[in-house]
Write a protein that binds this DNA or RNA. Structure first.
Lengths: 130, 130
DNA sequence: CAATGAACAAATTGTTCATTA
DNA sequence: TAATGAACAATTTGTTCATTG
């Protein structure tokens, strides 16, 4: 179960936000944890957002627990040369379906948050108001 | 000091969001705590956001501590009939200035968050992407 | 030392209880 | 009982420490 996204509250949680990105990024490249993190940090740099490795791993663990991704251990670099072990993530079949469902939920949630923030701009900076 | 808005992180905090609204709403109507809360709840109803009284009071206390608002005790309803005491908030002179500064900071912050969320929509639902 | 992971701590927010008139 | 306030609890996130190869 994808644990239906509930958060009826203020803005969406970082955890949910990262989950959305990971579900989309994992299938694309064969990135491992820190690699995915680097990419996201680069992506969000101009928005002043730099997620922590801790938070990213927590999402990956959660996705693993839920059976949405599968872990594959590999060696980074040349075998026999570099012994650094990394973990590559793949979407499971179940994950494929959950991903689509989750994306739909998150689209609604993103729209809700955009609405809320846009309203704040209108209410506090809008025309006709001091 | 308005405690320069710092939050270089993910999305803006609820506390900061409420502070912005209160700074704008307090001068308008002579609302007291729960009245202001009701109005905000009504405002945000369609966005599924319903702030708690606790959070609202915390913002009001903070604004008071910072000398941005002044408290005035009054009786609700007809004197001699209703003895319910309420607290009306007014912007102080200092508060007037701080308000403008804070609004500027928050505009930048709101824009940043809108940028982040819009990017998420583009990245995860945008054209040319599966 | 890069990568992963967990423990721990701080910050933020929500729920419940207390008081007062 | 409405309004205010504080205590307390839960949640969310960030910092630090540990392990492994």
């Amino acid at each position: 179960m994808p644990k239906e996204y509930e958060n009826r509250g203020f803005l969406l949680k970082q955890r949910a936000f990262l989950k959305l990105y990971l579900l989309n990024n994992i299938p694309k490249q064969k990135g491992y944890g820190l690699k995915l993190l680097e990419e996201l940090r680069e992506d969000f740099k101009q928005y002043g957002y730099s997620p922590t490795h801790s938070e990213l791993y927590k999402v990956l663990h959660e996705l693993t627990r839920e059976g949405i991704v599968r872990r594959e251990k590999k060696l980074l670099g040349e075998p026999g040369v570099d012994f650094q072990e990394i973990i590559i993530y793949h979407l499971t079949d179940k994950g494929q379906q959950e991903k689509e469902l989750y994306k739909k939920q998150m689209k609604a949630e993103l729209d809700r948050c955009l609405g809320l923030l846009n309203k704040a701009v209108r209410d506090n900076y809008g025309p006709l108001l001091n």
